[in-house]
């Protein structure tokens, strides 16, 4: 672990200025990801800007959406009355992540920005283009059981590990950021990037930008929702694959649908074509199966993750079945 400076501004502007001034600085929120990465030598910021004193913890209802502060904690958000009432899918996804101890430290902003769990990324003695551009991708021909089946490049096949983000992309959330050049709103689906030739960049956040909140529009997805997380141990494990499913039903007919997958790509993977295949159809296993087939178009596996080609569509079916029955 390197030596670093530590500052704890109380004003948003001071925090943004501090980061904008210093290319080697990093915000720190819950620290549950960043500190691990620093201990392993994967990240070595010269300065930590602790943002926990900024007033960004509120969860409030605003103009037809739910606004969740970037510093709201994963645990409390999952148990928040408003969230449970309006966005139960988000609550489920949050509760599926990590452990209670971690959820009580981890923030919403930090969660979106957590880095991949690719083991090559974590080991400075091994090649990894994300950690050290140009060093090669260790996973491509290595142990790639946890890796992507969609949207990868020959530079990086890692997946984004967040559960929360899968629900947020399904729910058409917007990320609110504030930076040296002012405020902007980033649709959640445009927030994370595909690796392409620059796997070192996980998101479209610019240097100096602070996430202030995430907005989730109110919608009809308050009942028939399910977050299906498949993992080899019953709790406290990253997803092999996960599915966020939300249905709006009229009798047995699907009026509207949202579907996204986790553990399959470098970003939370929204399945708009599969959603289209659901809308207007009866909520039957047959419909779900067809949607799953649509969802899997273009998937491609590597040496150790071929199981995902079967597990992912199965998980979609299971998630939709459970959501419809909820």
């Amino acid at each position: 672990m390197n030596q670093f400076q530590y500052v704890r501004p109380t004003k948003q502007k001071a925090a943004i200025d501090a980061l904008a001034r210093d290319a080697n600085a990093q915000f720190i929120a819950g620290g549950t990801n960043l500190i691990d990465l620093m201990k392993r030598g994967v990240m070595a910021p010269q300065k930590l800007i602790d943002i926990n004193r900024l007033p960004l913890t509120k969860i409030e209802s605003q103009n037809g959406s739910l606004r969740i502060g970037a510093l709201a904690l994963n645990g409390p958000v999952a148990e928040d009355k408003l969230v449970l009432e309006r966005q139960p899918l988000l609550a489920q996804a949050l509760s599926a992540g990590a452990s209670p101890q971690l959820r009580n430290m981890a923030t919403v902003g930090g969660n979106m920005l957590q880095r991949t769990r690719c083991p090559y990324f974590y080991d400075t003695a091994l090649p990894c283009n994300k950690r050290e551009p140009g060093s090669g991708c260790g996973a491509l021909e290595g142990f790639n059981r946890m890796h992507a089946i969609f949207g990868f490049s020959d530079k990086c096949i890692a997946v984004h590990p967040s559960d929360m983000s899968v629900a947020l992309v399904a729910l058409d959330a917007t990320v609110l950021v504030s930076g040296p050049k002012g405020d902007r709103r980033i649709p959640f689906n445009d927030f994370h990037r595909l690796p392409g030739d620059t796997p070192q960049r996980d998101t479209n956040l610019e240097q100096g930008e602070l996430i202030t909140a995430v907005e989730v529009p109110d919608g009809p997805f308050t009942k028939h929702v399910h977050y299906q997380k498949v993992r080899e141990r019953a709790s406290y494990a990253f997803a092999l694959v996960s599915v966020a499913a939300a249905l709006s039903l009229d009798g047995n007919t699907i009026k509207d649908a949202r579907l996204a997958m986790g553990g399959v790509a470098h970003k939370p993977w929204r399945l708009t074509d599969a959603e289209k295949a659901l809308i207007g159809k009866p909520a039957t296993e047959e419909t779900f199966r067809q949607a799953a087939t649509v969802a899997m178009q273009g998937a491609k596996a590597f040496e150790h993750n071929a199981y995902k080609l079967k597990m992912a569509p199965n998980a979609i079916i299971q998630a939709l079945k459970t959501a419809a029955a909820a």
């Binding site: 083991p119 974590y122 080991d123 003695a125 141990r233 019953a234 709790s235 406290y236 494990a237 990253f238």
Partner: peptide
């Protein structure tokens, strides 16, 4: 080199 080298990658049972 081991590539499962922490408890996130090397799983032991939890209570559940």
């Amino acid at each position: 080199r081991y590539i499962t080298k922490d408890f996130a990658d090397y799983h032991v049972p939890v209570h559940a």
